[in-house]
C-alpha cells in the first residue's frame, strides 16, 4: 500500500526532530506513534520497515505493558527495551498519548539512544500538542456532507460484494 508523505503543519518539525535524533544516535530509524497505533512521524531508513504494522503492534505492546505495570503496582513503565541479536528497539512514552520507537543496531549505543530520546522528548510533546490543536481546526475545515458522499462511494467501490453472496448454506 502506498503511503504518500505530505508535509503539513508540524509534520516537518516532528520529522526533523526525529531526523536529528537518528543522526546523533546513528540509529536505523525513529518513529513517533500514537497510542492508538498510528504512525505520526518517521525518519531514517524506515522505508524498509512496515511502519503501519509496526505502529499497531508497538501500540498494542505498550498498552499490554501498562496492564502489566498495573498488576505489579506501577502506573506505567515509561521505557521499553527489546534486545535482539543484531537489532534493538527502544520505546519511550512521549506525553500521555504518543510513543517514540528507535531502532538501532550497535547495542553499545544504548546510552546515547536513551540520552537523546530523553533530550528530544519535551520538544516532541510540544509538537504533538500543537499538532492536536491544528487537527481540531482541520477537522472543522472538512466539509462533512461532501466527505460523506465521497467516502460512501469509495466504500461501495472497494468493499465489493461478489458472487460469494450467492453461496448456499
Amino acid at each position: 500500500m502506498n503511503e504518500s508523505v505530505v508535509t503539513g503543519s508540524n509534520g516537518a518539525s516532528i520529522n526533523e526532530t526525529l531526523a536529528r535524533l537518528v543522526e546523533k544516535t546513528e540509529a536505523l530509524t525513529a518513529l513517533l506513534i500514537s497510542r492508538h497505533g498510528i504512525c505520526l512521524g518517521q525518519a531514517g531508513g524506515g522505508a524498509r520497515l512496515n511502519a503501519t504494522a509496526l505502529a499497531a503492534l508497538v501500540a498494542g505492546m505498550f498498552s499490554a505493558t501498562k496492564e502489566v505495570a498495573n498488576i505489579v503496582g506501577e502506573e506505567q513503565f515509561s521505557i521499553l527495551l527489546q534486545q535482539g541479536k543484531k537489532r534493538h528497539i527502544h520505546i519511550s512514552l512521549i506525553g500521555e498519548k504518543s510513543m517514540m520507537v528507535i531502532v538501532f543496531e550497535e547495542y553499545s549505543r544504548i546510552g546515547r539512544v536513551r540520552l537523546e530520546a530523553k533530550k528530544c522528548s519535551s520538544t516532541l510533546v510540544r509538537l504533538v500538542n500543537q499538532d492536536r490543536k491544528d487537527q481540531e481546526q482541520a477537522i472543522q475545515d472538512i466539509s462533512i456532507p461532501d466527505f460523506k458522499e465521497y467516502a460512501l462511494n469509495l466504500i461501495d467501490r472497494i468493499f465489493v460484494i461478489g458472487e460469494e453472496e450467492d453461496a448456499s448454506p
Partner: peptide, 14 residues
C-alpha cells in the same frame, strides 16, 4: 477517527 496532518490521513478503526 485519527486525523494525521503529517501524512494528511484520516484513519478509522473497526
Amino acid at each position: 477517527p485519527h486525523l494525521d496532518l503529517n501524512n494528511r490521513q484520516l484513519v478509522f478503526k473497526i
